[in-house]
């Protein structure tokens, strides 16, 4: 894999679409001029994935993916089930280390440091890169202790209650829980639990937040609240969100990457997740460069 990293900036199968768009700042300016000026700041990569391939035993989940995640942008990963978007997300904070049989190759550089490099502690990586999961997973502890969990792990014990309040406010949950901080978090509604999990992740002040379908288990109103929250958080933290919901990507994401399940080897039966196209969300949805992207975003593809 390492020997290919020079050429891998250009995805193996489709030469034109993905990286090409991002390497042309002119193409992006068009989109960002339509957004508020604050968001027009130049793209600055926080995390760079190069030729990332993930195998579970013999199965290839993610094949040769290269892309950049940019500071203070929301990046959405979309694509059909089994296209490896969640697996790719979990390589960013080394959660795949915990999956028996998962083998990651390629390079994931976070602020220029290879997270899989020798001497890099996965614990340290996960302390810097937060994660929110598909199903709300608050600990069976009080609301306060949930948010304080990461703070206590990191030894951030001064002004604990101030930090907890701040995180809950950032997650737009403070007003709903300020009178029940001592109550068990499992008594909250699903949407509140998920915002609590976001607060829990934000409390330790990550600069990159990974979200794996954070609204897929929630009702529409709770989903809207989470999406509003993502737009607010964008100015403070870089966000990568995996979603099944294309409208959600269109609503919240500045940049969108479309993945698909494609043949990955010489063998027709060997299929895995491949990055098809990556670019500004609006462009990807309105003027996709690849036919497969167009089929997917227009609903012609299962």
């Amino acid at each position: 894999m390492k020997t290919r990293s020079e050429t891998s900036l250009t995805p193996a199968r489709d030469a034109a679409p993905s990286e090409g768009l991002l390497s042309q700042p002119a193409a992006l300016d068009v989109l960002f001029e339509q957004r508020s000026p604050a968001e027009a700041e130049p793209l600055e990569p926080v995390l760079e994935a190069r030729a990332v391939t993930v195998r579970y035993g013999a199965a290839v989940a993610v094949s040769d993916v290269s892309l950049d995640v940019h500071r203070n942008r929301v990046t959405a990963f979309i694509g059909p089930s089994g296209c490896g978007k969640t697996t790719l997300l979990r390589t960013f904070n080394r959660m795949n280390d915990l999956v028996p049989g998962a083998v990651v190759s390629g390079r994931v550089a976070y602020h220029g440091v290879d997270v899989n490099g020798a001497g890099v502690d996965p614990i340290e990586v996960r302390r810097r890169i937060g994660m929110v999961f598909q199903r709300p997973n608050p600990f069976p502890k009080s609301v306060f202790d949930n948010v304080a969990f990461g703070l206590r792990l990191h030894g951030l014990k001064d002004d604990l209650s101030g930090r907890v309040e701040e995180a809950l406010r950032r997650a737009a949950l403070w007003d709903e829980v300020k009178d029940r901080l001592g109550k068990n978090a499992l008594g909250l509604s699903g949407g509140q639990q998920q915002r609590l999990c976001i607060a829990r992740a934000l409390a330790v002040e990550p600069d990159l937040l990974l979200m794996d379908e954070p609204a897929s288990a929630l009702d529409p109103i709770s989903t809207t609240r989470i999406e509003d929250l993502l737009r607010e958080l964008r100015s403070q933290v870089t966000i990568v969100i995996v979603t099944h919901n294309m409208q959600q990507a269109a609503r919240v994401a500045d940049l969108t990457a479309f993945f698909s399940v494609e043949p990955t080897g010489g063998d027709e039966h060997e299929r895995g997740g491949v990055l098809i196209e990556y670019g500004p969300t609006e462009q990807l949805f309105t003027r996709p460069a690849d036919r497969r992207t167009e089929d997917y975003v227009t609903g012609r593809f299962g």
């Binding site: 915990l98 996960r126 937060g130 999961f133 199903r135 997973n137 600990f139 792990l153 992740a201 330790v204």
Partner: peptide
């Protein structure tokens, strides 16, 4: 002990022992 709960703790940068002490044993 649900895998989600352990993942949640690991994702916050907990070590194995911290996951055991903070999530597995209380649960």
């Amino acid at each position: 002990v649900p895998a989600d709960l352990k993942d949640g703790a690991y994702a916050l940068g907990a070590t194995r022992w911290e996951v055991v002490r903070g999530v597995v044993l209380p649960h």
